[in-house]
């Protein structure tokens, strides 16, 4: 910054460390809880240092799950979450990039109608049309299926607009050069546009994977069969056990497992994540 005042630097670091602590504290407590035997967490003061049951607890949840919640193995729920998050991310990217391609690179009747129809989806999140959407999915026989978990969520105005925005910055001369080189619309898309969109696709993938993973209401609506539970909604079944105290050590192990994949993606692909986040909001 402009001037050099040592005490200001100290305050800056202090505030930031405070922020890091604030942000990390719940995670730490969850991790600590997940390493202790269940009886340590029934009353009194909760320990702040890890215990010795790390492997046992995680093995328990990944294997047989919590007996009190009906015994869905967390491993299976994580699998379901992975399938759902991947299908949503890939599905959204695929259908968005092709529709953006049509809207930008073709002129056809009803083009604007398509554009505005896609736009409208921005204003209709699941939360405002819970019941009728559920009915449609039920009528189509898509309850308790991976298709039901993912397909209704893969329409994406955000992704379509991002690709549209990007396509508009691709120089026209490139398209013309490709035409002179003999490339038709299909080859141009595959050979030129897709490779040029690589970073955008990757950034979008990171964001959409997280989006898919943290879905809660939708899996809650369309799954009744436990074998289709995702981990984020499944954890709710564990904490709201009617006649028993939650088994906190196992609940927290599950929470840690539920956070692990998306957080790992954010930390490992930070620059793509930031790019994706900023670009999709344009």
């Amino acid at each position: 910054m402009v001037e050099n005042r040592p005490w200001m630097t100290w305050i800056t670091h202090l505030v930031l460390l405070g922020g890091v602590l604030l942000v990390a504290f719940p995670l730490w407590v969850a991790f600590v809880a997940s390493t202790h035997p269940g009886q340590n967490l029934l009353s009194g003061v909760m320990p702040l240092l890890p215990g010795d049951r790390l492997f046992e607890n995680y093995a328990t949840v990944l294997g047989v799950g919590l007996k009190a919640s009906g015994g869905v193995p967390v491993g299976l729920m994580m699998m379901n979450s992975t399938v759902m998050a991947l299908s949503i991310a890939v599905g959204k990217i695929v259908i968005s990039i092709v529709s953006a391609y049509a809207i930008v690179y073709f002129r056809f009747p009803f083009r604007m109608l398509c554009f505005w129809t896609i736009f409208v989806t921005l204003m209709l999140p699941v939360e405002v049309r819970i019941l009728p959407t559920f009915e449609v999915v039920a009528d189509l026989g898509m309850l308790n299926s991976y298709a039901g978990l993912s397909i209704p969520l893969i329409a994406s105005a955000t992704a379509t607009f991002l690709f549209r925005q990007f396509f508009l910055t691709v120089p026209d001369e490139l398209t013309e050069a490709a035409r002179v080189d003999g490339a038709g619309p299909f080859r141009f898309f595959v050979d030129i546009l897709l490779p040029l969109s690589r970073t955008n696709i990757a950034a979008l993938f990171v964001i959409l994977f997280i989006y898919g993973w943290i879905q809660y209401l939708w899996p809650l609506l369309v799954t009744t069969d436990e074998s289709f539970y995702t981990i984020v909604m499944g954890i709710q079944r564990m904490v709201t056990v009617a006649d028993a105290q939650p088994q906190w050590h196992l609940v927290m192990a599950t929470a840690v497992l539920a956070m692990l994949p998306p957080v790992a993606v954010v930390v490992a692909m930070q620059s793509l994540f930031v790019k994706g986040l900023v670009e999709t909001e344009k």
Partner: peptide, 9 residues
């Protein structure tokens, strides 16, 4: 990183 944590979690 908390951005990647589901609201429910």
């Amino acid at each position: 990183w908390p951005y990647a944590v589901a609201p429910a979690i």
